[in-house]
């Protein structure tokens, strides 16, 4: 990797200040960024680690019942500490990568990266969560802007993510056999106000809501409600691991299985 400066501040304010320089970059768990640096595919002048900021860590239930997770909280912590308050989210976190990844990787890092095959974006979008940064609050529907793209500004840090807790939810992931990222992952969350369905892994535009499925499930929340619903394969990812048609098919299968798991 190329040389860079390194800072590990203990407050959000210090981190924001440290990120003010040109080509500075925030470092969460480094599960994507560090391999990228090792391959010399990125050359930030400075890395600002957020892992020393205590107020960005941990899981807590807020007064309104939502579950707030600090941006620097590891997947392993979420899997453990959200198990009571938001079991579907905890289960998702517990299935990301392997133990080494789960004990390093963070929710903020995952969401800010917005890998099209990552798991967390499906939970955030599927739950209608709110992304809280040092500067503002962003609704999930406004946050994800296509593959590796987000609404974050330069130097903006995800300090926490606030999840409303649905009546029932489930994430069903079909593994890409090599990376074990999601070839297709479907997150279904049933709220009193309606059903949300978010799909990851499948689309060239990154995570998205499958509105036809939501409408069908709003009418009738059972697996059969999805019968005959197909997603257009045109914008699906087609690669070594699965064709566009196959991914479109898996979107239906995984969504149905998520609904079954909610029953």
């Amino acid at each position: 990797m190329y040389s860079f400066e390194f800072e590990k501040p203990s407050t959000i304010a210090d981190a924001v200040a440290a990120l003010g320089g040109e080509d500075a970059q925030a470092l969460g768990g480094g599960q994507t960024l560090i391999p990228t640096l090792k391959q010399r595919l990125a050359a930030p002048t400075k890395l600002v680690s957020v892992s020393g900021i205590a107020e960005m860590k941990g899981v807590c239930v807020e007064d309104d019942g939502s579950v707030a997770i600090g941006g620097a909280t590891t997947h392993a912590t979420v899997a453990r500490e959200a198990a009571g308050s938001y079991p579907a989210l905890a289960a998702l976190a517990g299935q990301i990568g392997d133990p080494a990844v789960r004990n390093r990787g963070t929710i903020g890092g995952s969401i800010a990266n917005n890998d099209p095959a990552a798991c967390y974006p499906a939970a955030v979008l599927g739950s209608g969560a709110t992304i809280v940064t040092n500067a503002r609050q962003i609704a999930a529907d406004d946050f994800f802007e296509g593959m590796f793209g987000t609404a974050l500004d330069e130097g903006e840090i995800i300090t926490s993510v606030r999840f409303p807790v649905p009546q029932a939810a489930s994430y069903q992931k079909f593994l890409q056999p090599a990376s074990r990222f999601a070839l297709v992952g479907a997150y279904v969350a049933r709220f009193a106000s309606g059903v949300r369905v978010a799909i990851t892994g499948a689309s060239e535009d990154g995570v998205f809501r499958w509105s036809e499925a939501e409408a069908a499930l709003d009418k009738e929340f059972r697996p059969d409600a999805l019968m005959g619903l197909k997603i257009n394969p045109m914008n699906m990812i087609g690669d070594l691991h699965g064709s566009k048609d196959y991914r479109a098919h898996l979107v239906s299968v995984m969504t149905k299985r998520a609904v079954e798991a909610c029953m």
Binding site: P177, A178, S179, F181, D239, L240, H241
Partner: peptide
Amino acid sequence: ALLENCAYDENGQLLSASFMDYAM
């Protein structure tokens, strides 16, 4: 039989050039 596939694209670039795409 089930997993491994060393694949090149039409330009001779290795598509399965890491464990992210080469399934051990």
